[in-house]
């Protein structure tokens, strides 16, 4: 049984942008694409720990602002020739309200 916590309205995030949710164990980046899809991933690039929420969002991908690694927002996998992945978190959007699984707050990556 998953508990869902509301984290805010979809319009609080700009299209092709992201915002952070602070948890006791680190930041989770919540992305909104041009097509209003919403994804949540760990806000920390596995390469040099760049804050992915600050990257440029294109399609359902984000480019890390520090050294241009590109991640698929849905799977968390690095794209192209780079190898690595970030944790993803379940998200649900109902009537423009964004919900995140409660355990995400507890198991967020450091």
């Amino acid at each position: 049984m998953t508990d869902w916590i509301e984290i805010g309205d979809i319009n609080a995030i700009p299209r092709r942008g992201a915002r952070c949710v602070n948890t006791p164990s680190g930041k989770i980046a919540v992305f909104r694409t041009q097509e209003d899809q919403v994804f949540a991933i760990e806000n920390r690039c596995p390469h040099k720990h760049g804050p992915l929420s600050e990257g440029i969002v294109h399609g359902a991908s984000v480019t890390c602002p520090l050294h241009n690694w590109v991640f698929d927002l849905a799977t968390g996998q690095a794209q192209g020739a780079d190898e690595g992945s970030v944790r993803t978190y379940p998200i649900d959007v109902i009537d423009g309200r964004i919900f995140m699984a409660a355990e995400a707050a507890l198991v967020a990556a450091e």
Binding site: I7, S25, K27
Partner: peptide
């Protein structure tokens, strides 16, 4: 303004970072 504030805070106290 959205750039400079977190969207939400989970748990108390506020995330250490």
């Amino acid at each position: 303004a959205h750039e400079f504030a977190a969207m939400a805070e989970f748990g108390m106290p506020v995330a250490a970072e």
